[in-house]
Nucleic acid binder design. Structure first.
Lengths: 189, 189
DNA sequence: GAAAAAGCTTGTCCTATGTCAACGTTTTCA
DNA sequence: TGAAAACGTTGACATAGGACAAGCTTTTTC
């Protein structure tokens, strides 16, 4: 149950067994269904989710009803409505498991307790933020001023498994192109 | 010279006078010209810049020669090629002062020394990362699936001074639209 | 302060991609 | 397992906005 999480942590910090068990004790297992919503648009996010099995999607829907996905967390990754988790404002986005999933959940309170109590865990949080920031910047550069074909090539380059793992619709909503366009591009390789 | 920086720090952390002077002692004044480049495309970023006067722009140029700007730091703000500063990979972007500017510069080594030596300064770094992350997510949601008019409205809403402060060209390259389109939209309010 | 450079605006034209709809396939779940 | 729903693909058509160029204005620089 906790192997993947322990692997995640030990890959990123020097943590001894005792501390590791202490950290893991704050994460509670949770089973979810396909398309289950974990955080709603107006809610304030109070939980951080680690994906043991399945997949989490973070997305929003604008006034015109257009869906845009901003992040997918697969097995072995963390995901939540992080802006809301950080600043405790309404999420204005949804957190959803797009498949039947097995998660490990930690509350915000416990998470920040660990961040301040265990310096090594604080460094993990810092690394999450740094990586999140870098990823977001790459995405901005990778998408702006690129046409649909280039975006698809970009995602194949940067996240090779992405198109295989998520539906055509969701991939399109991540790339900011219409499902038809994505479909046409894929058919031409 | 250091008032703005001190204000920035004291607004975000509990730092006593002695520590404040210690922190400031690592920041060196620097004068730059209009359009001076501080970090080049292939360089690895070793400096963090605080803007005392003037303005820093972070941008890149892709193979097709299209410029895209990802961030502007104005008076009282920090700016650098942060992804490169963090992971010490080539920047693949430029840092530039778009006006004659007055900066306070700290080296990466000193910066991370302060982060680990002064817990309160570590919290400032964390806050920078958190805010950077949140801002980037908002930008992704704010630009994806929006047409040119909506993007312009978005920037007026979110950074009211932006269009007044930067050139039409640079604003367009930030918004991901052509200068002509931005010009046309502005003329219609 | 004059010449040169850079920038802004606006017209014309053109293309990439969105929309909508029809159809066939796959998935879901009772 | 079979009906219904969801999804993917493809065609026809419409359009937002990019490219380019010309003319005008502002800024820079020496």
């Amino acid at each position: 149950m906790y192997e993947l999480l322990k692997k995640y942590i030990s890959n990123r910090a020097q943590i001894n067994d005792e501390q590791m068990d202490f950290i893991c004790s704050f994460f509670k297992p949770m089973q979810t269904k396909r398309n289950e919503i974990l955080v709603r648009y107006e809610e304030i996010c109070q939980q951080y989710y680690f994906v043991n099995k399945g997949c989490i999607r973070i997305f929003t829907i604008n006034k015109e009803g257009i869906e845009t996905s901003r992040f997918f967390a697969f097995e072995g990754g963390f995901g939540t409505a992080l802006p809301s988790f950080i600043d405790q404002q309404p999420a204005y986005e949804y957190v959803q498991t797009i498949e039947k999933s097995e998660l490990l959940v930690i509350s915000r309170t416990d998470f920040y307790y660990l961040v301040s109590a265990i310096p090594e865990f604080g460094l993990i949080y810092r690394a999450i933020l740094e990586l999140g920031f870098i990823t977001a910047q790459k995405r901005i550069y990778g998408f702006q001023g690129f046409d649909a074909l280039e975006k698809v090539k970009w995602i194949i380059e940067n996240q090779p498994h992405f198109l295989l793992r998520v539906s055509n619709q969701m991939a399109a909503s991540y790339l900011g192109i219409s499902p038809s366009t994505l479909s046409r591009i894929k058919s031409k390789l």
